[in-house]
């Protein structure tokens, strides 16, 4: 029973990682950029959510606020920061991204205080359901469900719509796609908007789960997100989802069985390094 509970809780964390990692891997697949500032977007979504919820008293309004703000900021980051750097060596965008993330994190601290903002009213946190003997609160259930819905919708969108086809074409061969009349820049904007929307949703859910939105909340998630997309084969979308779930479960068991040797946040990287020793390009093949 205890192990089943660890498994379920691990899968739920894994689902949250997947929401975060999808945006990262999409950006990498398209632009070859390690988008560390994705964590800033994650925290921004959470702040937009908590401010809206506390101002209006409605958690439902917090959801579009978190997703909308994040989806608006993502493309701006592309336009003003990454776009002028695309021809530079990859470390340029990486360090710019780290710089942006540090500045965002500190900006949140200065604006909203170092101790973070709690939700005034968070019924989703206290309402619990018992599923087969495992007690979960509404936020945890929402995490699992929204990942399923978002990943599913994204899969359909990629597989079956015209825009999705244009997207896949751009990822696999940008020049060829352009010759066929696809505007690669529009695909990139869309890419950042969708990835950031998911990060904003994930940020809000983590904020609800801890009942606290604090400036540093994005950091660890983002570093783990990078580990996940490397594990999943950089740019490989299904690979990233599978790696997220694996990591969630390994962490959940690891915090119980490895607590004497490693802290929780190091487990992801222990797994990463162990896997890369055997398969230097991740569990699954990278895009392109």
């Amino acid at each position: 029973m205890f192990h089943l509970e660890l498994l379920v809780v691990g899968l739920i964390w894994g689902a949250m990682y997947a929401m975060m990692a999808l945006g990262l891997t999409l950006v990498y697949g398209l632009l070859r950029i390690l988008h560390v500032a994705h964590a800033g977007v994650f925290a921004l979504g959470a702040y937009a959510g908590v401010l809206t919820a506390n101002a209006t008293g409605s958690l439902w309004l917090a959801v579009p606020a978190a997703i909308g703000v994040a989806a608006a900021v993502g493309p701006l980051i592309y336009r003003f920061i990454y776009a002028p750097m695309l021809s530079r060596p990859p470390y340029v965008a990486l360090i710019a991204s780290i710089g942006l993330f540090i500045a965002m994190e500190d900006g949140f601290r200065l604006l909203f205080g170092p101790y973070g903002l709690p939700f005034d009213y968070n019924p989703w946190f206290v309402t619990t359901y018992s599923l087969g003997g495992i007690s979960l609160n509404v936020v945890q259930i929402a995490m699992a469900v929204s990942t399923l819905v978002l990943a599913g919708a994204f899969g359909v969108f990629i597989a079956a719509t015209r825009v999705g086809v244009a997207w896949r074409a751009t990822v696999s061969d940008p020049q060829m796609a352009q010759s066929f009349g696809i505007d690669p820049v529009r695909v990139r904007y869309l890419n950042f908007a969708i990835g950031s929307a998911m990060a904003g949703a994930a940020g809000l859910l983590v904020g609800l789960l801890n009942n606290l939105v604090e400036p540093g909340m994005g950091a660890v998630v983002s570093y783990k997100g990078l580990a996940i997309i490397v594990l999943g084969g950089l740019g490989n979308v299904p690979g990233a989802v599978v790696a997220s779930l694996i990591l969630g479960v390994v962490e959940s068991f690891g915090t119980v069985y490895l607590a004497a040797v490693l802290d929780r946040d190091a487990i992801a990287f222990a797994v990463l390094i162990a896997v890369l020793l055997i398969r230097p390009r991740g569990l699954f093949a990278p895009a392109r």
């Binding site: 390690l34 990859p90 990078l226 004497a260 490693l262 946040d265 222990a270 890369l276 230097p280």
Partner: peptide, 28 residues
Amino acid sequence: FATLRVREDFLAITTMGVGFLFLGFVRK
């Protein structure tokens, strides 16, 4: 030695992992 086969972006993330592993180990 461990990272010889890992290149570019994979290397950047792996070395980042080494940093977190060091911290996670020492803290415990």
